[in-house]
């Protein structure tokens, strides 16, 4: 697999898996209005995934976007681990998404300058969507953090639990470095300080404290995952796997 293909799949996979998680909220939101908002986020993410998979399929030359989404196994998915975490309660979801949205916003802003024109165009379209997601999750984080005596410790716990999945976002491996020197990839490490600013500023408004950096999970980009991903894929891929010759 070419480095560019793998790089594209990483982005597509993170969008798809997070979209899948968000779509699980459908008919379960805390208000009907928020149910609609969560579906909108999911639809944006599926749209992004679709765009990046189409490009990946073009690079691959044989598989279609749907083949890539529905016929690869756990170890062949390259998403960040943070996006595969289960939804938990609404606060868990907001924290997970907020941390990832902040990264995604900065990541796409950089990727829009990529020398790879397709990646740059897909990123430019995604920025607008992710900017809104970040706004939405930031506002909710502030409401929940600076809400009631019940809600504040609840989301503080979410934050403490999910924090260990943020380290991976800023890692650079050989694929990142190779494509960075070609002017294609984003220097993930370089967006960390801006991410810190976004996170610190919002946590302060939310009256939440930033967890200490301790053990940081890693490996998603290389196909190492939490146990959650297998169940997610089993459900998502069921029809394609059960009816290998069918067209849908």
């Amino acid at each position: 697999m070419s480095s560019l293909l793998q790089y594209t799949l990483r982005i597509a996979d993170s969008s798809l898996i997070l979209g899948q998680r968000m779509s699980e909220w459908c008919a379960k939101g805390p208000t009907l209005e928020e149910d609609i908002a969560l579906s909108n986020i999911a639809l944006d993410l599926f749209g992004q995934a679709n765009g990046f998979y189409e490009y990946a399929a073009e690079l691959d030359g044989e598989k279609s976007a749907d083949d890539l989404a529905f016929l690869r196994n756990e170890r062949e998915f390259f998403n960040h681990q943070i996006v595969e975490l289960e939804n938990g309660h609404f606060g868990d979801t907001i924290v997970r998404n907020f941390l990832h949205d902040g990264f995604n916003f900065l990541f796409y802003t950089e990727l829009a300058k990529s020398k790879d024109e397709t990646l740059a165009a897909l990123a430019a379209k995604s920025i607008k969507e992710v900017k809104y997601h970040l706004r939405h999750t930031s506002n909710w984080l502030i409401r929940l953090g600076d809400g009631t005596e019940e809600s504040n410790p609840k989301v503080q716990t979410s934050l403490n639990n999910i924090w260990q999945f943020t380290g991976e976002l800023f890692e650079m491996d050989e694929i990142d470095n190779e494509l960075l020197s070609a002017g294609i990839a984003v220097d993930n490490a370089s967006i960390k300080s801006e991410w810190d600013n976004i996170v610190n500023k919002t946590l302060k408004k939310a009256k939440l404290s930033r967890p200490e950096d301790g053990y940081m999970a890693t490996g998603g980009k290389k196909g190492m995952h939490t146990e959650h991903l297998g169940f997610l894929l089993a459900e998502m891929q069921f029809l394609q796997r059960a009816h290998p010759n069918a067209k849908w």
């Binding site: 208000t31 209005e33 928020e34 609609i36 908002a37 909108n40 706004r135 939405h136 506002n139 409401r143």
Partner: peptide, 20 residues
């Protein structure tokens, strides 16, 4: 209309419901 706890939420709820 929409239901919302504050004006920011009202604006976002309106966006999500009425401009799909």
């Amino acid at each position: 209309n929409v239901h919302a706890a504050d004006k920011v939420m009202a604006l976002e709820n309106a966006r999500d419901l009425y401009t799909r």
